[in-house]
């Protein structure tokens, strides 16, 4: 393929990647920003969303779009409820101590992953695309559904921003993020806020999973890779900065696609990883981070 169309193709692929990544990272960033904890189980909530999407769409006959829409509503709800209850049962009692939370969320990671293995088995599970339309862009074909993924992600990101910036709930979150003790002194029910945030973070990851699962299959080990990437995105973007998270997701998603144009695939992965290291070495607090951590 000529370089021009190739770059266009790689950019489109990178955009899809970036869209999904920014959603996953957004969930992680929200939890980190407000609660100051690292949720290592975040990738498993993503996986849970994907597996549930497959499970739910299996009940629905007729148009695959109905199953998909149903999954888009139910899967994040279930993932969110599971996350909230694990916060309530476990993390709360650890008083959100950073180290203890890491090890506890590793525990939650194993439990969710293995429970899915026991319940749904180890196979990769497909979900049918809600609509199957291949755009023929002369040099190559591209699935119209992938544009839908990008579009949905943008809408979701925008609504999260709206909630954060314009609503009272957003105000409470921002207050908690800035200074949880003072927020508590002003009568904000910190414990409830934390549970909600943990649930919402997981639900956003599950939404990302439902969006991606018609393109990639659901599998009980699928949570690892997005967790790593989301981690990188959150750190590069600067901890707790939503704007930075989205910018970093676009940067990493796109660069991953475009670097792969010029190098052999594995070398491209090495270079993209090195790129992350260099960014962090030059700006240890991330591109948009200011405070010390």
């Amino acid at each position: 393929m000529d370089l021009g169309p190739y770059l266009l193709f790689a950019s489109l692929e990178g955009l899809v990647h970036a869209a999904v990544l920014s959603l996953i990272a957004l969930g992680l960033s929200l939890v980190f920003g407000v609660m100051r904890i690292v949720n290592v189980a975040h990738g498993e909530f993503f996986m849970l969303g994907a597996i549930l999407a497959w499970w739910i769409s299996g009940f629905v006959f007729g148009s695959p779009a109905i199953g998909f829409l149903l999954a888009l509503i139910i899967a994040p709800l279930i993932a969110g409820v599971i996350a909230m209850s694990s916060d309530w049962l476990i993390l709360k009692h650890l008083k959100y101590d950073p180290e203890a939370t890491i090890i506890a969320t590793i525990g939650i990671l194993y439990i969710i992953q293995q429970a899915v293995l026991m319940t749904f088995g180890p196979d990769a599970r497909p979900v049918e695309q809600p609509f199957n339309y291949r755009l023929d862009l002369y040099w190559f074909g591209f699935s119209a559904y992938k544009f839908f993924v990008v579009f949905s992600a943008i809408i979701l990101l925008f609504s999260v921003w709206l909630v954060m910036a314009k609503t009272k709930f957003g105000l409470i979150l921002r207050a908690t993020q800035l200074d949880s003790e003072t927020a508590q002194a002003f009568g904000i029910p910190i414990s409830t806020v934390y549970s909600l945030v943990f649930g919402v973070g997981a639900a956003i990851a599950a939404v990302a999973a439902v969006l991606i699962v018609p393109i990639q299959q659901a599998h009980y080990l699928m949570g690892g890779e997005p967790l790593l990437l989301a981690f990188i995105v959150v750190i590069i973007g600067g901890l707790g900065s939503l704007r930075g998270t989205v910018a970093a997701a676009v940067l990493i998603g796109m660069s991953d696609g475009i670097i792969s144009v010029f190098f052999s695939p594995n070398l491209a992965k090495i270079i993209a990883t090195l790129f992350v290291v260099i960014v962090l070495l030059i700006k240890p607090n991330g591109l948009f981070g200011s405070e010390k951590t």
Binding site: I90, A104, G107, L109, I111, M118
Partner: peptide, 8 residues
């Protein structure tokens, strides 16, 4: 899963 529970 048992490792996970033990960790918790």
């Amino acid at each position: 899963i048992i490792v996970g529970i033990a960790l918790l």
